[in-house]
């Protein structure tokens, strides 16, 4: 395994973007990083900059305006990258599927590698999803 790949898997940097969720999943993502669940002990670092991120964590259903921002973030993130859709509404639109300004899950906008279910998804699930994402990242990186 290449050194870079190894470093990447040891400490994945995540970019969190909310494209229309109710906040429930967002605060659970932060909760997953803070002391009780502490994903940071696994080397996960939340970073605000797409250019340094390996994993994009997206919450909420996509709407036209956030989709544009999301696409741009996705394009700015360097390869290899994996996308984790957290929560029911990021997967399918969830309770918001009937809302006028929502066009469903984020996979309508960018390719999604891992879907984490739940409304809101629990921190344990989110960490599990991240680990799954790392496995995919390893594959993508040719490891």
């Amino acid at each position: 395994m290449r050194l870079v790949t190894r470093a990447r898997l040891k400490s994945p940097w995540i970019l969190h973007f909310d494209c229309g969720s109710c906040n429930g999943c967002d605060i659970e993502i932060l909760a997953a990083l803070t002391p009780k669940f502490d994903a940071e002990r696994l080397g996960v670092v939340n970073i605000g900059d797409p250019k340094q991120a390996d994993v994009i964590v997206v919450t909420g259903p996509a709407n036209p305006r956030s989709a544009r921002a999301l696409r741009s973030l996705y394009e700015q993130t360097p390869d290899p990258k994996v996308v984790v859709a957290v929560g029911a509404c990021a997967a399918t639109g969830g309770v918001f599927r009937n809302c006028e300004n929502v066009f469903g899950g984020v996979d309508k906008v960018i390719p999604v590698d891992v879907y984490v279910p739940g409304c809101a998804a629990r921190p344990e699930q989110i960490i599990d999803g991240l680990l799954l994402a790392l496995r995919k990242l390893k594959e993508k990186d040719g490891g």
């Binding site: 709407n63 036209p64 305006r65 696409r71 599927r97 009937n98 300004n101 066009f103 469903g104 309508k108």
Partner: peptide, 21 residues
Amino acid sequence: KSDAPVLAVSIPSALEGGTQP
């Protein structure tokens, strides 16, 4: 609401006006 569609042609923009799935 958004000022411009996400892409010139997009799955979403077609869904906007349609019946709800």
